[in-house]
């Protein structure tokens, strides 16, 4: 536990001085506060920006941060120094993962407040966000583990992040995109968030998110077995 705590506390100090990571945590929560208060159009669905940006936030922030943190440590050989100090790979990943998860959950709280969720709806929203953050973090970890350095991590992260964060928005305008997007957890999150308070939770969404989780876990295991944290 002390190793996980050491990695977690290291990450707090490191990231608060790393603007590129910090901006990922702040960008969408800040944008949602501004947009929700500044833009009010007729016929616009209630809390439109909360629902839109929440999914984009989950598809982008945890994924980008996890892959950037891991790949930077690999590139700069700080990860090797940790491993040689008896920090186990799972302790490192849990330490970093816990940090990213908590930071994103704080962001999710901002969305929840802006969306005016209360009671059961609030719980539902946070569970959906939590599941999405977990899945995105796992996907980011796959990319981080697989990449040799920050450059290769960025080149993989950008297209993957675009798929998960922008497909739900694009699927609003195109039916074909919507059909493809259905298999992604972020699209299902979007459906679930939009259904809070009226449509309820569809089993189909839960199954797709679970399948996404299994696929991400398999990819992570394969990446870790092939590359480790070297």
């Amino acid at each position: 536990m002390k190793n996980i705590t050491a990695v977690f506390l290291k990450q707090i100090k490191e990231t608060f001085r790393n603007k590129t990571i910090l901006i990922q945590f702040l960008m969408f929560p800040v944008m949602v506060i501004i947009m929700e208060n500044a833009i009010k159009l007729e016929n616009m669905p209630e809390h439109f920006f909360v629902k839109l940006f929440a999914v984009m936030f989950v598809g982008m922030a945890p994924l980008t941060c996890m892959s950037a943190i891991i790949s930077e440590e690999k590139e700069k050989n700080t990860l090797r120094a940790l491993m040689m100090s008896n920090v186990k790979p799972f302790e490192y990943l849990l330490g970093v993962g816990a940090y990213v998860f908590i930071m994103c959950i704080i962001g999710a709280v901002v969305f929840a407040v802006c969306g005016g969720y209360e009671g059961k709806d609030l719980l539902e929203f946070m569970v959906i966000m939590g599941a999405g953050i977990l899945l995105s973090s796992l996907t980011g970890a796959v990319i981080g583990v697989f990449s040799k350095n920050q450059m290769s991590a960025t080149s993989i992260t950008i297209p993957v992040m675009m798929i998960f964060s922008f497909l739900p928005m694009l699927s609003m305008f195109n039916e074909s995109i919507e059909k493809v997007a259905r298999i992604t957890y972020s699209q299902q999150m979007s459906i679930l968030i939009n259904g809070i308070g009226n449509a309820g939770i569809k089993p189909e969404s839960i199954i797709i998110i679970a399948v996404n989780f299994v696929v991400a876990s398999i990819l992570f295991t394969l990446a870790f077995r092939k590359k480790g944290l070297e």
Partner: peptide
């Protein structure tokens, strides 16, 4: 080739390993 955490101070760099 062991790296140091560039954004952290010397003390903070050692503190990570001191915790471990």
């Amino acid at each position: 080739n062991f790296g140091v955490y560039d954004r952290l101070s010397c003390f903070e760099n050692l503190k990570i390993f001191a915790r471990i």
